[in-house]
Simulated assay, not measured.
Amino acid sequence: MAVIGGGWWFYQHREANALVANAKPAAPPQVTVSKPLVENLDTRLGFLGQFSAVDQVELRAQVGGTLTGIYFKDGDIVHKGDLLFSIDPVPYEIRLAQAKAQLENATAKRVLADQELRRAQELEHNDAGTVENVQQRTSDLNGAQAAIDDAQAQIRDARFDLDHCRISAPFTGRIGRHLVSIGNLIAGSRAATSPTTLLATIVSLDPIYLDFDMSEADYQTFSHYRSDLRSPLANKVELTSGNGNDSVLTRQGTLDFVDNVLDRSSGTIHARATVANPDLRLTPGEFSRVRLAVARPVPTLLIPDASVLPDQSEHIVLTVAADGTVVPKQVQVGDMRGGLRVIRSGLSADDRVIIDGLPFAAPGAKVATRDSTLRYTAKQD
């Protein structure tokens, strides 16, 4: 029994060794690699901005009275000088007529005073009158002239009130909804401190402001490049905003204001660009992505964003050496361009970056490679 059992074990062990000796080694996993794409790209800073109106006015009456007309539809585009509201002008027409009557009365009194002064001067010249009489008539003439001046001022004041019974658009823009109805008695005043009735609001649309905030680090980068360039390049911004069809609207604007202090609570500084809006598609309150170019185009490395692996606070890219070994490299990344991620440092143009098959690649392991070529799509930039 012992001899038979020993022979059986020897036979099985020999067969197992033969199978191991004849077994082929497992093929390494296959991955797709590509060299980084090199494109001449400028250096950009990106922000989230919000549009605001250059001019925004609350329409209030400078005279009080009964509202007699509304001459726009809510939300219309109105043009400078268009009639928007009218107030009952009758009380102000009466006041203007009274002021004109006072002027006629004052003019008649001045004519009489002038005639009496001449007679007093003739009498005094012929030794038939006194100097006191001449002085009295001169005073009467000056008083009549003052009454004329006062009446003329009353006419201008009454005409001012009458003219402001018609409220027109101060500039071209979009008007909101009317806040009063025809027949309401509204309060009006020329003084900003007096209570008045708000009739509507109007905002300008072309041009339009785009407001955004820079972090302290971005502001330092912006200031550094702008001082080095000594050109208006750093004052140009590009903006994109999506619409209901998921398309992107791209426009350009001019950076024309950067605040003089950083906000201590948020660590940001406010900036503003002015954007042309001739088609009036941009609306105050709408958000937009802002891209600010701060350096001229230089050769830049691009790889797919999926090839960049986060490692705590760092970023890792897996490359393949000449012998097929996976080599991780730490990189510094930038923004997205043309659907690809900008690599600021850590890679060279000759590195073979794994762009597909990352789950099968481990640092230090051997892989089989298949070459591919990256493409840059400017429309996605």
Rank of each mutant, 00 (worst) to 15 (best):
F72C: 01
N142W: 04
N184E: 08
A108K: 09
A106H: 05
A147F: 01
G129I: 00
T138H: 08
D76K: 15
G81R: 12
H178G: 02
G188M: 03
I94Y: 11
L84K: 11
E93H: 12
G75P: 00
F72M: 01
A169R: 06
D114G: 14
E124C: 14
H178M: 03
D149F: 04
D157Q: 15
L117H: 10
L103W: 00
I87N: 06
R174A: 14
T172Y: 02
D150Y: 08
Q154L: 03
F85G: 09
T107L: 11
L179K: 06
Q136T: 15
E116Y: 10
A97G: 04
V111I: 08
Q145L: 09
C165R: 02
R95Q: 13
C165H: 00
A169E: 04
L83C: 10
G183L: 12
E132F: 04
P91N: 14
G188L: 04
Y92T: 11
E124R: 15
S194E: 15
K109Y: 13
R119I: 14
K73I: 06
I70M: 05
D114F: 15
S86N: 08
Q115G: 14
A128M: 14
A97I: 03
E93G: 08
A169W: 02
S194W: 12
T138Q: 15
Q121F: 03
D157C: 05
R110I: 00
I87Q: 10
A153M: 07
N105Q: 09
R159G: 01
Q98I: 07
I94N: 08
L199Y: 09
V131E: 04
G75S: 02
T193Y: 10
Q145K: 11
A144H: 05
R174G: 07
G183A: 13
I87E: 11
L83N: 12
Q152K: 03
D76L: 14
D163H: 08
D114H: 15
L179S: 04
H164R: 10
T130W: 05
N142R: 12
D161A: 13
D150C: 05
G176T: 00
S181I: 03
Y71F: 13
D161T: 08
S168G: 08
I148F: 01
E93S: 13
L103A: 08
L83P: 07
R177L: 06
N105D: 06
Q115K: 14
A146L: 04
R137V: 06
